[in-house]
């Protein structure tokens, strides 16, 4: 019942655009990746790289009417979510696919009690009496380790701390025992100690409930600690993907290397000069056809007008093969996409 290649989710050449005053801007440009069952896939990149738009395209939560999926497929359990009807996608969202947003305060309704909001999820997706839904909600809060869940059901979101609120959002996302959870920067707004609690909780729940996770983050530390596979995005495209161990040990694309080397770690000598990536992510309107990282680096080379091919360098390790950005590596090319 899974996608063509047996994964729970397969995103294939997804294109998402936004209609703006300056014309149609392509935020996601033929992105492909897949999520194996029970695994965590991280999508990493700087702001504006299209990582959140990619994730939100999967559940079709795009800003309306500007956002549109213009091409590609999202195979989830044998169905193409791109083609699914609005009713169908509404049942999937919050049901088989749970979503955890970055800012828990804006994901929760400030004027309703916690209990009502958790109960609502059960009532929407399951034929269940109010009382049973209430019991299920308490059990859910218990599962995300909220102390005194019966009492918290009567609280309003503002009465809880940031970490507790994020636990509620996780409870909402997991209420219907989804097989896939999309977590968009779930710990970015939290302190490190609370981040550690939440990541630990997600890992334990993943084990218990056997779900797959797409984790969107800009934090390479979080990626390294939680993900099995990593997708690196730059300017709307996937520039590299590999297993986490392979990517951190053997990054091939200049952008991935740049990202990995620009973060100070506890081992970096104090006040030493950090590696930087000059410039910034180009705005959508400035995207070129050729290698976009070359564009940022101010390189315009003859023959780079075409989009670089996406090749498999070693089993499972894919990279956008730009003559400059992936120079000095040998390409025992076996597979080519695009």
């Amino acid at each position: 019942m899974n996608g063509p290649n047996g994964n729970i989710l397969e995103v294939n050449k997804l294109i998402t655009s936004f209609e703006t005053d300056r014309g149609l801007l392509r935020a996601v440009d033929q992105v492909s990746f897949s999520v194996p069952e029970g695994k965590t896939v991280g999508i990493v990149g700087e702001s504006g790289c299209g990582k959140s738009v990619t994730a939100m395209s999967i559940v079709r939560l795009l800003p309306q009417p500007a956002g549109k999926i213009l091409g590609g497929h999202v195979w989830f359990k044998g169905r193409d979510l791109v083609q699914a009807s609005d009713d169908e996608i509404r049942r999937v969202r919050g049901g088989e696919i749970g979503v955890i947003f970055q800012e828990p305060m804006s994901a929760l309704n400030p004027v309703h009690r916690i209990g009502r909001q958790v109960v609502e999820v059960f009532r929407l997706h399951q034929k269940i009496s109010k009382r049973d839904a209430w019991d299920a909600a308490v059990e859910m809060l218990n599962l995300v380790r909220i102390p005194a869940p019966e009492k918290r059901m009567m609280d309003y979101p503002h009465q809880l701390s940031g970490g507790m609120r994020q636990r509620i959002v996780i409870a909402l996302a997991l209420a219907c025992r989804p097989s896939l959870v999309i977590a968009d920067e779930p710990t970015t707004a939290l302190d490190v100690t609370v981040q550690a609690q939440i990541l630990d909780l997600m890992a334990r729940l993943q084990d218990e409930m056997k779900m797959s996770i797409i984790l969107i983050t800009h934090d390479l530390g979080v990626i390294a600690e939680t993900c099995d596979e990593v997708v690196v995005m730059y300017a709307g495209r996937v520039v590299e993907k590999a297993s986490a161990t392979e990517l951190f040990a053997n990054p091939l694309h200049a952008y991935t290397k740049g990202l990995l080397h620009s973060i100070p770690t506890l081992e970096t000598p104090s006040k030493s000069v950090l590696n930087t990536i000059p410039g910034m992510v180009a705005s959508l309107a400035e995207h070129t056809h050729g290698c976009r990282f070359c564009q940022r680096m101010g390189r315009s080379l003859p023959g780079t007008r075409e989009r670089p091919a996406f090749i498999e360098v070693s089993p499972g390790h894919w990279v956008e093969n730009c003559a400059v950005c992936t120079a000095n590596i040998e390409h025992p090319t076996s597979n080519i996409e695009h």
Partner: peptide
């Protein structure tokens, strides 16, 4: 100690023992 142990390490081969603090 708890604060330091909570920092995620950008290296998947390193698994450090975390001191998880309860509450806020």
């Amino acid at each position: 100690k708890a604060l330091l142990s909570a920092i995620p390490t950008p290296d998947p081969r390193v698994r450090r023992e975390k001191i998880l603090l309860e509450g806020d």
